[in-house]
């Protein structure tokens, strides 16, 4: 039972990060290869706080979320202001992630590449609570005026700009929100596994996050979140096939792009499906 609980908790933590990326990639239409970096920032900020200064977990979680959100401005302000091509932006944010990893590996406060052993503070209550809170906040946020503006930008940036939407500010807002969610996920992850290492937050993780969002469907919250759960829980059940997990992700991305680019629930939410049946 303990094992199953752990798997479910891990899946919930991942769902929060995927939710973050879904806001950015699914709703604002920008492609990121570096969101694991924000998870890493959240994990390390909270981890360092609880490890060195015994900060209560609530404050560590808040600090991790805030740090990830703020750090997204560092990369977001220059790149989004320059309105880079979407693939240039993806590479720029990948570079940000790599630079961050090198920094984490060489700082003494993070204990370098050997990793940081933090205490196990985030119980199921924290994780499920944060997940529900993030789902609610994200849903309402995307239903607000901002959500509509994001979708307008995704569908046609030029037309959106002509209609008077400030592309730079909206994209930056979207990036900050998604990074903050990833940061919260990181803080929970660190205090769930009780051990963090810089290599946990590299391109492989970014790819997994992206694969979940694409497979779940662009423009949907419930799709990516469901897929994130499956993607975390399924490999755990098929431990013996662990080596083939990443090839399968890769293949899945290609197949989805060829046969079903809208993903599992593209532009729809889970409740919509039930409504249609009635």
């Amino acid at each position: 039972m303990d094992y199953e609980l752990n798997v479910v908790m891990l899946a919930c933590v991942n769902m929060i990060a995927v939710l973050g990326l879904a806001v950015f990639t699914g709703f604002t239409g920008l492609f990121s290869l570096g969101h694991a970096a924000f998870v890493g920032i959240g994990a390390y900020t909270s981890g360092v706080l609880t490890y060195h200064w015994d900060v209560p977990f609530f404050f560590a979680l808040t600090a991790g979320t805030a740090a990830a959100g703020l750090s997204s401005l560092v990369i977001g302000i220059p790149t989004l202001r320059a309105k880079l091509r979407s693939d240039y932006f993806a590479i720029a944010i990948l570079g940000f992630g790599e630079a961050l990893r090198v920094c984490l590996e060489n700082l003494s406060v993070t204990n370098g590449a050997r990793g940081l052993s933090v205490s196990e503070l985030s119980g199921p209550g924290w994780i499920v609570g944060t997940l529900i809170l993030s789902l609610l906040v994200t849903r309402n946020f995307l239903k607000s005026r901002f959500g509509a503006l994001f979708v307008a930008i995704r569908e046609d940036p030029t037309a959106a700009e002509m209609a008077g939407i400030d592309l730079f500010r909206m994209r930056l807002l979207s990036l900050a929100v998604s990074a903050a969610l990833c940061g919260a996920s990181g803080a929970l992850l660190a205090h769930r596994l009780a051990f963090i290492q810089p290599v946990m937050f590299t391109l492989t993780q970014s790819t997994q996050l992206l694969a979940s969002v694409i497979a779940g469907g662009i423009g949907s919250i419930s799709g990516p979140v469901i897929v994130a759960f499956v993607f975390t829980a399924l490999p755990e059940m098929l431990r013996s096939l662990d080596m083939w997990r990443l090839p399968a992700y890769g293949l899945l991305l290609v197949l989805i792009m060829i046969f079903r680019p809208q993903g599992l629930l593209g532009y729809r939410e889970l409740p919509d499906l039930f409504r249609r049946r009635q």
């Binding site: 990443l246 090839p247 991305l253």
Partner: peptide, 20 residues
């Protein structure tokens, strides 16, 4: 963007197939 995602998928697939 779709081509890029597909390319990313290929890269992950090929690299990790060799790995496996």
């Amino acid at each position: 963007l779709f081509l890029m995602i597909s390319a990313m998928g290929c890269s992950v697939f090929l690299e990790n197939t060799v790995y496996a």
